[in-house]
C-alpha cells in the first residue's frame, strides 16, 4: 500500500510518520508524475493559499483530479480540506473543487483561538478522538453525496464523499492512528 503525502508545505512529516506507523509505504509528492503509482494521497494542513498557488504553478491540479476520478482515495486535513472543497466563503483562491462542500477559513478565529477537544466519530468506534484545531476551517454547506462523519457543537468538522475524506482538525498531531487507519481501509477497498 503506497500512499503519497503532498509535500508542498505544512504538516508533511507528521502525516508520513503516522502512515509508516500504520504499515503503509510513503512517498513525498512534489511533482505530478509522482502521483501515478499511488494507492492514495493525503493533502496535509498548512497554509491553503500557499499550497494552492504552488499546486497550480507546478501543474499538480490536473494530476490530483485524475487520481480522484480514477476512484483513488484522497484525504485532506485542515488546509487540505479547503483545497478539496468546491467553494470558500468570501475567497477566490485556487481550489481543487473535488468535494461538494463549502468551507469557511479560519472559522474558529486566529492562532490564539486554536484548541484541542475530544470528538465523537462513530465510524472510528465509541472511544473519543482527541482532535487538534489550528486556525481551522469548518464545513458550512454540504452537497447531496456528502456524508457527515463528525460534528463539533453542531458544526461539521469531518466528512466523506465516496473516495474523498476531509477533516477540519489535524489527526496527525496526536498518537491516535484511527483516522489514518480508516483512510488506509478506504485505499484497500479500491
Amino acid at each position: 500500500m503506497k500512499i503519497g503525502v503532498l509535500n508542498i508545505q505544512g504538516a508533511v512529516s507528521e502525516h508520513a510518520d503516522m502512515l509508516r506507523r500504520c504499515g503503509a509505504e510513503v512517498a513525498l509528492i512534489k511533482r505530478p508524475e509522482q502521483l501515478a503509482d499511488l494507492n492514495g494521497l493525503i493533502i496535509p494542513g498548512g497554509e491553503s493559499t500557499t499550497i494552492g498557488k504552488l499546486v497550480e504553478r507546478f501543474g499538480l491540479g490536473p494530476a490530483i483530479k485524475d487520481m480522484a476520478a480514477a476512484g483513488k482515495p484522497i484525504f485532506g486535513t485542515c488546509a487540505g480540506l479547503i483545497l478539496l472543497s468546491g467553494k470558500v466563503a468570501g475567497s477566490e483562491q485556487f481550489l481543487l473543487g473535488l468535494m461538494d462542500v463549502t468551507v469557511a477559513r479560519n472559522a474558529f478565529g486566529r492562532q490564539r483561538e486554536s484548541f484541542e477537544t475530544d470528538l465523537d466519530i462513530p465510524v472510528l468506534g465509541a472511544h473519543p478522538f482527541r482532535a487538534v484545531f489550528i486556525r481551522a476551517p469548518l464545513i458550512l454547506g454540504l452537497g447531496e453525496g456528502v456524508e457527515v462523519l463528525c460534528r463539533h457543537n453542531g458544526r461539521v468538522v469531518a466528512a466523506r464523499q465516496g473516495n474523498l475524506l476531509a477533516t477540519s482538525f489535524h489527526p496527525e498531531l496526536t498518537d491516535d492512528e484511527r483516522m489514518h487507519r480508516y483512510f488506509l481501509a478506504m485505499a484497500k477497498e479500491q
Binding site: N7, Q9, G10, A11, V12, P44, G45, G46, T50, K53
Partner: peptide, 26 residues
C-alpha cells in the same frame, strides 16, 4: 503550520498582499 514555507517582512497592507499573492505562509 508554517513548516516548509516562507515568511516575509512587510511594512504596509500593499506589501502584505504582494507577499500573500507570492505564496508566503505568513
Amino acid at each position: 503550520m508554517q513548516k516548509g514555507g516562507v515568511i516575509m517582512d512587510v511594512t504596509t497592507p500593499e506589501q502584505a498582499k504582494i507577499a500573500e499573492e507570492a505564496g508566503a505562509v505568513a
